[in-house]
Amino acid sequence: MKKIIYILFIFFVGLVSFQSISPLMQQPKGWPKPQYNFAENKLNQAKINIGRALFYDAILSKDSTISCASCHLSYTAFTHVDHALSHGIGDSIGKRNSPALMNLAWQTSFMWDGAVNNIEVQALAPLHDIKEMGENITHVVEKLNRSPLYQQLFYQAYKDSIINSQRMLKCMAQFMLTLVSANSKYDKVMKQQETFTAQEKNGYIIFKNNCTTCHTEPLFTNTKFANNGLPIDTVLKDFGRMKITNNAADSLLFKVPTLRNIEYSFPYMHDGRFKKLSQVINHYTNGIQASATLSSALKKPIALSANDKVDLIAFLLTLSDKEFVFNPKHQYPKEILIPTKEK
């Protein structure tokens, strides 16, 4: 009898732990539960489609020149490659490097300094930024209400003709939440489907010894804020998290970024100061600037031989997820957006 109860118990635990978030989004094996409350915004294909269309539609910018994708390209894990600081309308240059977008359902705060507290309100920031999209939400909602395409898309999703900012923002959140990257070589090695080369294996050991306090597996971020010893840029004067909290203890703290797809998301750091991974590694071995808020994890110097550095980079490259970066479901939705242009 005890045995039966035990087996039943294991069975139910199994059921719970293999539960998917939604038929539209799988929970990667071994990952923690998402932070996002999906119960309040249930994933729905029609809503994801709206979010995807909006993400790629310059209707969100004042002069119809910039979409979210202008700064967040799917082929580069949704960052703006080659630009240290992102470019917005009228070619104005922003204050920060656009971060790669993935696994956002596991994050609790957004932006390099955590200025945004929920993925649903994220779009409001670039939309209103005069250097990014220069729009305002009231006007964007008016434009969507006048658009036959969006009238139709919202009707399909909600079965009524209401288009308001809440629906728009929740749809955009749905699209972004489905950007899950969990199928890199690293993941396959962890699932014992592939094996590391000797170099990658050594790199993984070096990584675990020096980097995982902050770039914690499996997300490769602990989603906290830290000062990783970058000297301040005297022109940008960006003190990071302190701008939000007004607390001196948060001076020079930035959100720990994920390292997944790091091969594609150069340049690196909040201001895009490093173009190459080798420069990043050299920063951690030789460039750490001591300051009152420097993370204790980096106070002890990191010494790596030239070979170790090469191996560490070889490991970081195993975090590239080609399936994610080239996923057609993440790309420009021709089938949704092009027909309007013919009308």
Binding site: E40, V121, L124, A125, D129, A173
Partner: peptide, 18 residues
């Protein structure tokens, strides 16, 4: 997250950058 009615950000009572 995103709210409607009186809490809708269209009323200009929501900070967008933070």
């Amino acid at each position: 997250g995103a709210m409607a009615g009186h809490l809708d950000p269209i009323h200009g009572m929501y900070w967008t950058w933070q």
